[in-house]
Amino acid sequence: MRHLLNPLDLTVEETYDLIKVAEDIRENPDKYCEVAKRKILATCFYEPSTRTRLSFESAMIRLGGQVLGFSEATSSSASKGESVSDTVSVVGCYSDIIAMRHPKEGAALVASMKSAVPIINAGDGGHQHPTQTLTDLLTIHTYKKKLDNLTIGVCGDLKFGRTVHSLITALVRYPGVKFILVSPEELRIPESIREDVLQKNNIPFEEVETLEDVMPKMDILYMTRVQRERFFNEEDYIRLKDRYILDMDKMKYASDDMIVMHPLPRVNEISVEVDSDPRAVYFKQAQNGVYIRMALIMMLLGLKA
């Protein structure tokens, strides 16, 4: 039995296979609409996350399966002091696979140690969110037809942005990848990613503070939100939150085939006027999240179309 706790739990080949299945699901949804018939997905969400939970539920329903679960800790036995291990041991009796989100880092690993059914980490605090990374890889593959030899710009909060760290860690496995890291000094990429991931793998990267200058070089621009909850000081948040706002003026610097991605939700780091630009793919990215989760559920349950 396999779990998915970290994007690197999947080899490059397995990731590619998942992407191919997800792309086939997108093209031929009817072929997959009963693949998970009589299977049950439990969504154990100890903290609210509308979009990830709904994306998992949509994925299971589109596979013909059914869904049960809870969407916040107060509506589960956790509020009575039950451990994660005990909860998954019980929920595993009611379901065939569990998608779990928990505010504490490592909670999904703890769940996987006791669970009788596959565990999918749907986010464990600021640690890992592998299905977001898979969603990002599918989106890149959809628009670029490859995952290698790309220049990826990431912009915004690179210090606390979990999705950025996971994406970089996953992409360094592909040859010819380069990064342009755009952030204010205070929100630069952590040393652990710079040294242990980028430098260790001899990945070319540059760190800059101005977006416009480097946009022409990018194949992909991955925007992130500056998250209020990461700051202890409201003044710092206010000072930094609007540092990068992508609007149509800035989009003029981008090549015609650059794509703009964002894990969503956005606040105001991408102006609404950009939404209608064909290079803005962030809503398609959210749609891809359903397809890749469908492919993942199939893989972990050993289901075939």
Binding site: S83, V84, S85, H102, P103, K104, E105, G106, A107, L109, V110, D124, G125, G126, H127, D196
Partner: peptide, 30 residues
């Protein structure tokens, strides 16, 4: 933010992440 902070009966496990720098990381939160 580590799960071991709230579930204190969990075994505290560390793994050797970098032998040259002698860095150990928490198995749960890294």
């Amino acid at each position: 933010r580590c799960i071991t902070c709230v579930e204190q009966e969990l075994e505290q496990i560390f793994f050797l992440a970098d032998i040259e720098k002698k860095v150990y990381r928490c198995l749960y939160c890294e």
